[in-house]
């Protein structure tokens, strides 16, 4: 399990000289077999990171190392498919483009609710998502990169497709990176987290480890030193703070609980917003 599926070192991307950094100082290593949630607000750099990982964009700085083109599958946000092909034609194309590794059974299972003779241009957004995912999973990739795959699916379809995806990882150990700005879509399915904001990585690690490394503290407004406070808020006489468990357990007049994943993300996003307002150099 210590094998790395994809790794970035000092990765940065700027779309043109006069423009800001879409992604910067991005370094991480994702162990093989993980299902990684790539989360962050709109414009955080999620799509840029996925396109770089897929080898479709050239980095401005740094490197990203992952499996060869043939061993990865990437489903872009706009799900590019040939509009004139039928569902059945699209899967035939998938088989011909991936000789020797195509899994027609899993591809067929994902589109089984669709009319095989329907042309892609006639399909709804959610139906197109199914076809795009069928193509991606049929390829039996080592690494699957999905950019906001669930955005136009209803809750039932979302659940079914996430189930199909998890079954695939259970069976073949596929590494998955899936982006979303809605955490609840991914909670439960993912065991690893990459939190992006403003083009930078704010959190990176196994979800269990990240949760265990933080404590949510509520109680009277008092100095929390020596603990590292990620973010704190005061409402009247009540303090709510997220601290890192570095200096041992938090002792004092506070109530301590383990944060939920959502609480952890929100605290880090608020903290990174505050950091961005401070002058360059003081942040990061």
């Amino acid at each position: 399990m210590s094998e790395t599926a994809i790794e970035a070192l000092g990765l940065a991307k700027r779309y043109g000289r006069g423009r800001g950094w879409a992604l910067r100082d991005c370094s991480f290593a994702l162990p093989a077999g993980r299902v990684c949630a790539l989360v962050g607000p709109n414009g955080a750099g999620k799509s840029t990171l996925l396109a770089l990982a897929a080898g479709l964009l050239r980095p401005t700085q740094g490197v990203v190392r992952g499996p060869a083109r043939t061993d990865l599958a990437y489903v872009a946000q706009d799900k590019p498919l040939h509009p004139q092909l039928t569902v059945a034609d699209t899967l035939t194309m998938g088989r011909e483009l991936n000789p020797g590794r195509w899994d027609g059974e899993i591809a067929a299972r994902i589109v089984e609710t669709l009319d095989p003779g329907a042309r892609v241009r006639r399909l709804s957004g959610g139906q197109r998502t199914r076809v795009a995912l069928a193509l991606a999973l049929g390829k039996r990739p080592e690494l699957l990169l999905l950019d906001e795959p669930m955005a136009d699916l209803d809750p039932l379809a979302r659940h079914e497709l996430m189930g199909a995806l998890m079954a695939d990882t259970a069976e073949r150990g596929t590494t998955v990176v899936v982006s979303s700005h809605i955490l609840t879509e991914l909670e439960g399915a993912c065991d690893h987290l990459l939190l992006l904001d403003g083009g930078r990585i704010r959190l990176d690690g196994a979800i269990d480890d990240l949760l265990a490394a933080h404590t949510l503290v509520t109680g009277p407004v008092e100095d929390l030193a020596p603990h590292t406070v990620v973010e704190s808020r005061t409402t009247g006489r009540q303090l709510t703070a997220l601290v890192r468990n570095e200096g041992g357990p938090v002792e004092g007049p506070w109530q301590t609980t383990s944060p939920s994943l959502e609480e952890l993300l929100l605290a880090h996003l608020r903290a990174s917003k505050t950091a961005d307002r401070t002058p360059e150099g003081a942040s990061a």
């Binding site: 990882t169 399915a189 065991d191």
Partner: peptide, 17 residues
């Protein structure tokens, strides 16, 4: 049930099972 059966029905991560 196998991990695969559980995750297909519940859409949770196989490692959790």
């Amino acid at each position: 049930p196998t991990a695969r059966e559980v995750v297909e029905a519940t859409a949770i991560n196989p490692n959790t099972v």
